[in-house]
Design a binder for these strands. Structure first.
Lengths: 203, 203
DNA sequence: TCAGGTTGCCTAATAGTGTTAGGCAACCTA
DNA sequence: TAGGTTGCCTAACACTATTAGGCAACCTGA
């Protein structure tokens, strides 16, 4: 019997494809083994089990999305960079819903090899967000706050949209998306708040 | 042998407690049956299976959170209402992480009794967000956009925080949360954009 | 108080999944 | 082409999801 030619990369990649087609929740070693044309226990050579498989897919998806966002940001600054960043994430989520869901998985406490990859890719993403915000006047002490705000808004919107929360009412999610990103751009570009507002935040 | 005195409400409620303790992903009919002191098949009298159980928990959690948000908003308007709304959600997520995760579940396509409850509770939540925003000057045509923006920001932040995304870097998530809500309040309260900005959005 | 019906929870049974242990043969190396 | 390595296999076990059908605990009416 010829060998299937598996590898950790092929397993993770096939797992990501499966997630996109059937949902990240449907990814299991047994279903993936069937899709790869091998018996279930064969996958245990490459991943430690179901949990590890999901972490590997998450790490893969985080790196792929980081590549896409990096490409989208190339040569752009300010408003253009913000829109490119947000659209890159949304496009990724729509084209690869399973991969996107994988990126939303919490990093497991047990620090295995997969979780190390996830943390590294997570740092890449934080740097990308920082790049986007470097095009706006933001006080250094508020940098991290702003990164978290940007991530919350983009991922909040994309997650809710992907879950169908905006599908059953008017107006179209498309128009709300443009509104949301245009508002954030306008707000970030607007002059900083007056003294007393800042004191309240600092104190 | 005495009867356990089960009911759909008791099953869903126990399932929600289990989700809070072990994670929403760990909720299964068999684990829940053990916790309730009955055999697994006994639960099939009350829920149609694993998927239905999760939907019932989601519906319960959506109603409980709607009650909490409603109470938090009572008597408040404007900035105070916004902060109360956001804090109510965040507190709910921190006290009941499993219930919160349940509310993030997409409504199933198959319109059973559970999904009907989810949709009804979802409408309640949309109305609550509308109440919060009624304290700000927002153009009627932008109402729904703003509701979606508010929901995206709050749930994006709360989800990322719950997943531990902000746990491994400075400054504290607590301070970023205050920054985020204070910024949103400031932005919503700021005067509307000039003519040309509005034309760009409309065109 | 007890006979009869209802029904809540049970056991039994089947199919499938997660995981470990150990074997055989396909492939690489000399 | 012989020998070692290792990729994928079968076998096995525990557990979960789900269906079918049974017994007895409870309610009702006389």
């Amino acid at each position: 019997m010829p060998r299937a030619g598996l590898s950790l990369d092929r397993v993770a990649s096939a797992g990501a494809d499966l997630a996109d087609e059937a949902g990240f929740g449907a990814v299991t070693v047994s279903v993936l083994a069937r899709r790869l044309g091998v018996r279930t226990p064969s996958l245990y050579t490459y991943v430690e089990g179901n949990a590890d498989l999901r972490v590997r897919i998450a790490a893969l998806a985080l790196e792929e999305s980081a590549d896409l966002v990096t490409a989208a940001l190339s040569g752009r600054r300010g408003s253009a960079a913000l829109a490119a960043y947000a659209d890159a994430w949304r496009d990724f989520a729509r084209r690869h819903p399973g991969r996107y869901d994988a990126t939303r998985q919490p990093v497991p406490e047990t620090g295995g090899a997969g979780s190390t990859s996830m943390i590294a890719a997570g740092r890449r993403h934080a740097d990308l967000a920082r790049d986007v915000l470097s095009g706006y006047r933001i006080a250094p002490t508020e940098q991290t706050h702003a990164i978290r705000l940007l991530g919350s808004l983009v991922h909040g919107y994309v997650s809710l949209e992907l879950a169908g929360s905006f599908a059953h009412s008017e107006p179209s999610s498309e128009s709300s998306w443009h509104y949301t990103i245009a508002q954030l751009d306008r707000w970030l570009a607007s002059p900083p708040p007056p003294e007393e507002g800042r004191r309240a935040t600092a104190g």
